[in-house]
Design a protein around this nucleic acid. Structure first.
Lengths: 206, 206, 206, 206
DNA sequence: CATGAATGAGGGTTCATTCAT
DNA sequence: TATGAATGAACCCTCATTCAT
């Protein structure tokens, strides 16, 4: 009765729950969902596999919760960015910044989402991922189109393709990004943003 | 490793073999390796699961063969590109072209490699993937550095990061690229190359 | 075994207890003992499954109590009937009436006893069921034999078989008897008694 | 490829299959379906539990096959009896004879059907049991009504109740009937038929 | 080459039960 | 009395793999 609000049979908000979920997220991201067993998660937590079911309805439910939390939070952030009403150039910069911030904050969820897309597509219950992806795309495409109309972004680029380009580059980085490594998330963000905006070739050429 | 000769007890080069391997590759790529069962592959081929073992030593062996073929072919192609001795700008263009060509030719192998990195890392026998990745990186980094020295590419970019950027963007595209869709692989390649080189922002701004 | 006193560590006689036991009996009867989980019983009662153990030692103990109560009460009634000293014809009629009365009063216990005989036989602790069954048989067989001696009942019938016949017909009815349905327990009893006594064929034929 | 005709994924007609199914039927009947584990069945057959799934899709599928075989065969037999066009008195006699014959032939299936009605009702896939029960009832009720019209059977009896009476008496006998015991199935049938027809009380009385 | 029966390990999940709070 | 977290054993089922035919 720590959290107070009940959802689907199992309580949310308890510290233990969050802890277990975070462990699971890391393992799902690192080894793959199918390749991570409930027993392994339980072992890592120092409990028996059966005890996990006191907190979560199923393995799928754990994945579900991990993904939903990330998707909701990120959509919220993205919406706040576009609602701020900056010019497209600035907005895109902010969106990229938020995307990289997620690389840090929601590292494991992003990795699961990125790595297991095919696997998750096999389950009806994860249909909302597609929906969320379309929501993300709509946000990006709108601001990219705006930028094209105002002459900031190249008119010959397909906004949907450009969105996928950015999305995939950032998402894929989750696989090699090391929070305790030399490259900070800001460092990567700066370099990537540079390429997105101005490319690798020095101006004046080509 | 040229084919036609025997490797690990099972014969190579037979048409049936290639057919089975291609089916398996598609399924591994689409549903995930762990989530694709030997029986499913056999079902798809119209044989019993046990019969697969007349062609391949194990499931891992199938994945192995799929990946090795791709990695060897692609390394070969990349080497031929750099050996041609063009200037860095042209070479990078050619490398990108080859990367996108692989998106078409080795679609499933690329997808498996991209999606299952974490899973495959758990097996000793797939250690050569890391080796190959380092080989790829070395090739890219060398030509990018050359371009920076000759002033073609921005000096402030990390060549290794730039490589990852390109590699990830292309690899991730395997997940949504549809050979029978509206966007041809050349179309995608052109737009991506444009961004890699010149960015999304129209010159003269920012 | 009169109630009110303590038996095996848990108190008897509390209203809550009886309520829980009645719920459990209904569920055991409807879904089967093995197929009814302690959690389901607890859910129905609005408590947690662990809390059931404040009232009962175990699931078996619940079944035990349900069955014992019924068996004791029914044996007691049967004995009172035979102790009344009526003629066999009347006594059998009274016994049948009591059997059908139990169909109403001890509906769930009868159903459990009837349905789960095989399952319960696997437990030592339910050995008393066999004993009780033999007690019942002894009562019936004695009065049936008496009736055969006095010429009321057909001499060629096996009293033990006749007893089983009656017992099974009544017990099995528990499965489709619906207290709020059109057929009252008295109505069923009358028709069944008619068949037991005089058969379905109109007199004078065959 | 022994049987030749395929049904739902697993082959029928193989001797091993029938053997396994018969073992399972006996165990389901004796201990209860829920209380019989796949491992126990496999142990009894001298194989590992996983191997059972080479022959059957699931535990439910085994129960299903056991019940379907019995229900289909018995319905067929009953229909053949009524199609013979005898008078109601004879027909009912034949039906009872067939019912007791099933007690011998389909002993375990009958027991499962009789004992686990409540449990099986929880599964959608066993909905056909209800249908079959209604088919049986229709057959019986029709011939009983006919008999009432022609004056053979007491008019005051409810045909549906009478059917249940007979059905339940016979079905319940499966629980104590012992094929190697003193009482033959014919012996039981004769006594039961006597009661059904003429009751226990000697004619002329009451 | 293919079949079909089997293995053996393990996977997700359930469930009666316990116990500190 | 009740909670909630955990146990531990078992359950149904899956799956890569083997092998006699």
């Amino acid at each position: 009765m720590t959290g107070g609000n009940r959802t689907s049979g199992k309580e949310r908000g308890s510290g233990r729950r969050a802890e277990l979920l975070s462990m699971a997220a890391r393992m799902f991201a690192t080894r793959g969902v199918a390749a991570t067993t409930m027993r392994e998660i339980a072992d890592e937590a120092g409990i028996l596999s059966g005890s996990l079911y006191h907190h979560f309805d199923s393995k799928e439910a754990m994945v579900d919760e991990i993904l939903r939390e990330y998707l909701n939070a990120q959509l919220e952030r993205f919406r706040r960015v576009v609602d701020a009403g900056h010019d497209p150039h600035t907005t895109v910069g902010e969106l990229i910044r938020e995307a990289f911030a997620a690389l840090h904050r929601h590292r494991w969820a992003m990795a699961v989402l990125h790595n297991e897309a095919g696997y998750l597509a096999g389950f009806d219950r994860f249909g909302y991922i597609d929906t969320a992806n379309r929501d993300f795309e709509r946000i990006w495409v709108r601001v990219l189109r705006q930028g094209q109309r105002t002459g900031v972004f190249r008119a010959e680029l397909s906004p949907r393709l450009a969105h996928r380009f950015i999305r995939d580059s950032v998402s894929a980085a989750v696989r090699w990004y090391n929070p305790s490594g030399r490259m900070s998330v800001q460092g990567i963000a700066e370099q990537y943003t540079r390429i997105f905006r101005d490319g690798m070739v020095v101006s004046g050429r080509d």
